[in-house]
């Protein structure tokens, strides 16, 4: 069985020292090993942005696609070979701005993909513009007078889109994050894991200390029932989305692959492509 070290490669990340994304990378590597994967059984599909580079920093199959489209690509990979473990990842701009349409529909579709968002409330790679996750009044290069748009709540959106697995974590809490990613991988369906991953260079407001002060760990509520949709929505709203842990999981809903009529149970990529003459003739006969 592979250890987390086997999910490492020797590519040096181009992230700034202290970036939250390092811990996310480590958590993915640990979770992959903990659930018993071999590197070749994992495909990490990422978007564009600082965090999008993550697929190149993990020793696994990886595809670094185009801005905002990690999810449709990841879903294509899963459809083609459901035997693979597919992780999609990217930043809050990637998933909640340019790619928001895909995020909502990937949630609805419920293919067995784990989506890890590195949420730093800012655009880092383009050097500091506002993101849909930036707070109102947040000053950036593109909002010199402060953002006048409402902050988007991905957790509320996920819940209303019919998510079957919603979790949130903080990159400093490697243990919790690793566990949540493991749970996400094991979940039969789409899992959203939003991770507060501070940008140490461009976001001087939402810092490590700021998160430590403001987030609430669900462990503080021993009676919290993550299978209760209403309780989950309430807790998200009560905490203004500043909570960590497994927020909601619906184990009863089947994944898209399991619901699609006739969809092959083994990886589709492995089957032969040629039609038999009989199959071919049968198709033609319908046009007579």
């Amino acid at each position: 069985m592979a250890t987390f070290k086997e999910f490492r490669n020797n590519v040096k990340p181009n992230w700034c020292p202290g970036c939250g994304d390092f811990s996310v990378q480590a958590a993915i590597q640990r979770a992959a090993a903990n659930v018993g994967l071999e590197p070749e059984q994992l495909a990490v599909i990422s978007g564009i942005g600082c965090s999008g580079r993550i697929s190149g920093y993990i020793n696994a199959y990886g595809l670094h696609g185009i801005h905002g489209r990690a999810l449709p690509i990841a879903q294509g990979v899963k459809l083609a070979n459901r035997e693979l473990t597919v992780i999609a990842s990217g930043g809050d701009g990637d998933g909640f701005a340019i790619g928001m349409g895909h995020t909502v529909h990937a949630i609805r579709r419920n293919l067995d993909v784990t989506y890890i968002v590195m949420d730093n409330q800012i655009y880092g790679l383009t050097k500091g513009q506002t993101s849909p996750r930036s707070a109102e009044g947040f000053k950036t290069k593109s909002t010199p007078e402060g953002s006048i748009e409402h902050t988007l709540s991905p957790l509320e959106i996920a819940m209303s889109a019919g998510a079957t697995f919603v979790a949130q974590s903080f990159s400093s809490d490697l243990k919790q994050l690793t566990t949540l990613i493991e749970e996400g991988i094991k979940h039969k369906g789409f899992s959203l894991i939003n991770v507060f991953s501070p940008c140490v260079t461009f976001n001087k407001v939402n810092t490590y200390d700021w998160f430590k002060e403001n987030i609430v760990n669900l462990e503080q509520f021993p009676d919290y029932d993550s299978s209760n949709r209403i309780a989950a929505m309430n807790k998200i709203m009560e905490t203004h989305g500043m909570l960590t842990g497994l927020i909601y999981q619906d184990k009863s809903r089947k994944s898209y692959e399991d619901l699609a009529v006739g969809f092959k149970e083994q990886g589709l990529a492995k089957q032969k492509l040629e039609l038999s003459r009989e199959q071919f003739d049968k198709l033609l006969a319908e046009f007579k």
């Binding site: 185009i66 990979v77 899963k78 990529a269």
Partner: peptide, 10 residues
Amino acid sequence: TMAIGANYAG
């Protein structure tokens, strides 16, 4: 992009 993902995976 979904078609690209699926072709990539075979």
